[in-house]
Amino acid sequence: MADQHTRPAELILASGSPRRRELLSSLGAAFRVVSADIEEVSTHQDPAEVARDLAEQKARAVARREPGALVLASDTLVALDAQILGKPPSEAENAEYLRRLSGRTHSVYSGVALLGPGGLASGVEHTLVTFRALDESEVLYYARSGEGLDKAGGYGIQGLGSALISRIEGEYSNVVGFPLGLVIRLLRAAGVSVWGQT
């Protein structure tokens, strides 16, 4: 997308997520934030392709408002038996999600898209997460905390939700919602210096 002699375009993170901001900052890249604010609807059925599609939609939405910029977008979703579990709208729905996830392994998919003057590049990261068996008091305690209400699948691995999990197979940062390995590959391919390397 950019050769070694071309100064990369300004990098924009198309997300208001404080977790994604913090993770991207940790890579040493200079960027600013412009929230995509799109209606998250995809025509795809496969969860991995839904995640990729939504990330690409977010990147395009911000790129239309920021011509010439390099726009980085991400979308993370949780799927159990190929059924997507979105952000629970209520405490009761959050508790129901936790009951379904209890003692089982589910998939976390993050789509990442990078759109700039040189074109679009995207990818998907997949991580398997296993919940320990939860009793009803634990389900209700976590649901009442409110931590899961703004998160795919109804839990956050980086907070109190870490106590729900017995095993992870794959990249931890993917479950947080920003798979750093994939983000680094896409940024470096576009000529952006991260961790001191282009």
Rank of each mutant, 00 (worst) to 15 (best):
P89L: 08
L160G: 01
V183W: 03
A113H: 08
L11H: 03
L114T: 05
A92T: 09
K151R: 13
G16W: 13
G156Q: 09
E125R: 12
G148H: 10
E91N: 02
L23N: 02
H5M: 05
F131S: 05
L85K: 01
R52K: 14
R60K: 12
E10I: 06
S90D: 02
L187H: 05
D53L: 11
H106M: 04
T127C: 02
R100I: 00
I38E: 04
R19D: 11
V112G: 02
L164K: 04
I12K: 01
A133V: 15
E39G: 14
R21E: 14
P47H: 12
L72Q: 11
E169M: 03
P88M: 00
Q4V: 15
Y141D: 15
V41K: 14
Q57I: 06
N174Y: 14
A36H: 06
V175A: 09
V175K: 09
V71N: 05
E22Y: 06
S90L: 02
R185F: 03
R132W: 03
G148D: 09
I38F: 03
P67R: 07
G161A: 05
P179N: 05
H5K: 12
E39C: 09
A121I: 12
L134M: 06
E138H: 05
I184Q: 01
R19W: 13
E39H: 15
F31A: 09
P18H: 11
L80T: 01
Y172R: 14
E10S: 13
E93I: 14
A48T: 02
P8Q: 11
V175L: 03
D81K: 09
A95P: 05
S25W: 12
L70G: 07
V62E: 10
G161E: 01
R100G: 07
Q4P: 06
A73F: 09
S35Q: 15
Q4T: 14
A95Y: 11
G153M: 05
S26W: 08
A189I: 04
I165P: 00
A163S: 15
S102K: 02
E136M: 03
P89G: 13
G196T: 10
L72M: 08
E91I: 11
L70R: 03
I184G: 00
E147L: 08
P88Y: 01
R144K: 14
L115W: 12
S26Y: 08
Y172I: 08
N174A: 11
L27I: 08
P47G: 01
L140N: 08
G156Y: 12
L98P: 01
A79S: 15
G159P: 01
